[in-house]
Design a protein around this nucleic acid. Structure first.
Lengths: 340, 340
DNA sequence: GTCACTCTTGCAATCCTTTGCAGCAACCGA
DNA sequence: TCGGTTGCTGCAAAGGATTGCAAGAGTGAC
């Protein structure tokens, strides 16, 4: 049998209430009693029973985290950030994975809601309406999405795209194509918008390509279209798609970046490991995870506004898949281009 | 306020005990009462309070999962498998990530133990002694490791290596090098052993290379050594290391598989996406996760032996990084070439 | 008609902790 | 010396579900 508060009380010669207070509100008991109780608790190896505590306080000391796909390294980073922040505050984390299935979100949310104090909902795919409908009484912080009335942590996707386009423009690119991600992704919308605004501002033609699944094969499928679009640079919805692009381009013998530049987004670890290494826009997902938990915890303790917003900066990381735009004349003759 | 069993009892006109029984031991109440209670429960949207139930039953309906690194796609697969099996049995899962830090394991284990009914310990890095020492009263199932007295789910690493070596031998390779993983990894030990046994049996020279961290840069670091070892094929501890090897070989302009063959282990999704695609030994981690949960659940219900073992089959997946061994004469030619 | 038995159901204790309230002592100022 | 604080401590009541025990109703056999 586990040691209970009663055992500690007996050992210290005080009542259960005093033990409880000595351990969780130490300033309420006299120093000498406090010391005696704490000594007894430590000696007996007492650990409060979380179920009993939760029963009366109504709190579980657990947080929930919902991500679209754990196998995506981006979300692995989020998970690690969330875990770290939660552990520091003595919270544990339940993780649920929707497998990119938007229709699974409301159900998971409801299931989680009962056993956690708050939920971090990362990159939700559900339409806003369903999201608010599934809205329980449990506090929720959104990540990578903004919905009116909800607190949210986002990254400045538009600014990341601005950096990307300006980088490409500076390299002489005049026609850039964007391989779009899921229509239901808020981040994708933000990226499209940032892209469009900057493209117009710097005088770059923007070609919009389909909506592709945010996976490797999405990039593979998009590569030929990108090549045929006449663009000299491709911006992908994320790094995994960019990796798919690179793969297909490589298979077709298309030189990157000599013939076409490729740019990803997220800066997952794999991006630095490809050949050539991927130029990408780094989004601080680990930090975003921490921030989301901090926000959630603040919400739980009733501090601050009920729908705070926090936006984290993005940063272009220039590696080897972006280069000077090919001379339009040379485009038809690759050999001439190379020998330049 | 949430709806409690009391509300359901009042609505159905029965006592709390009857409600409790109607919902969790339906065969104990009369069909008509049962129907009335269940209808009331559904109508009111009743969900039992897990804390209250846990308080009296001593069960949490939670499982714990400890993995070395969530960012490793291999473990992401394990997580998904565990989640799926747990959800099917109405358990939730706490996940802890040790960041490949063996010394963090005992602490995490202890912290988890209090809030779960059982733990799946995946690829533990701690020495056996520490593991058993940290051994709590909480049931634990090991994955990718066997320790006397513990139930475990493993994969047949040795047989996977047999398939790998026989494949290489059939391609004419006579000297193969192994890029070893962490010394503390049980899987690594099994792989070394399987490799050695088969190499001897088929008459292949085996060169053992260091112990490298199971990461991309481990492979990068090992590549030059592998090349210098005179082997015509390299087997890597896992796919990520193999990817590192490929990267460094590519950077040095070494042709794969013409000059040297590369073989990974695990079959992570990325392996199929490289150029050339990686030949590897697939280990069914998703299924292993499911199996581990099944075993844990059986343990919790007191069925079967206290230390059951289950071993899953591995399967060589031949892709494009393994090929016919280069002609030894050609090998020296090329070496002379490079030393010029 | 009565006894023994089964089938349902309700009562009430229990799990462990937190917390409002009250009691008690000591201490301060008047 | 006494009333009023202040500071600690203990009592006891939750909190929501499970479960051993017992009571009541119904059934079948003699």
């Amino acid at each position: 049998m586990a040691v209970t508060i009663k055992d500690v009380a007996a050992a210290a010669g005080v009542s259960q209430s005093t033990v409880s207070r000595a351990l969780s509100m130490p300033e309420l008991v006299s120093p000498v009693t406090r010391a005696r109780v704490q000594a007894a608790a430590r000696r007996l190896g007492y650990e409060p029973n979380r179920a009993a505590r939760g029963l009366i306080t109504g709190r579980t000391a657990n947080l929930g985290l919902v991500v679209p796909d754990l196998a995506n390294p981006l979300f692995a980073a989020v998970v690690k950030g969330v875990q770290a922040a939660a552990r520091a505050a003595d919270y544990s984390v339940f993780i649920a994975d929707t497998d990119e299935d938007a229709s699974a979100e409301p159900g998971l949310l409801r299931a989680l809601a009962k056993q956690v104090d708050g939920i971090v909902l990362c990159s939700p795919r559900s339409p806003d309406a369903e999201l608010t409908e599934a809205g329980t009484d449990t506090p929720v912080v959104l990540m990578n999405r903004q919905v009116a009335g909800y607190p949210a942590v986002t990254v400045d996707n538009a600014d990341g795209m601005r950096q990307a386009v300006e980088h490409l423009a500076a390299l002489g690119h005049r026609r850039v194509c964007y391989v779009a991600g899921p229509r239901s992704s808020w981040s994708n919308g933000q990226r499209e918008q940032g892209l469009r605004a900057t493209a117009e501002a710097v005088g770059v033609d923007l070609v919009h390509l389909g909506h592709f699944p945010p996976r490797f094969d999405g990039g593979v499928a998009a590569a030929d279209l990108a090549l045929a679009s006449g663009a000299s640079a491709v911006v992908a919805y994320n790094d995994i798609v960019a990796l798919g692009l690179l793969s297909r381009l490589g298979a077709r013998g298309v030189a990157v970046p000599d013939r076409i530049s490729v740019l990803g987004c997220d800066d997952i670890p794999m991006s630095a490991m490809t050949h050539p290494a991927l130029t990408t826009v780094a989004v601080p997902q680990h930090e975003a995870g921490r921030a989301a938990v901090a926000m959630l915890l603040a919400l739980l303790s009733d501090a601050g506004p009920t729908a705070p917003q926090r936006e984290l900066a993005t940063q272009l990381v220039v590696r080897a898949t972006t280069g000077v735009a090919p001379d339009p004349a040379a485009l038809t003759d690759r050999r001439a281009d190379r020998s330049r």
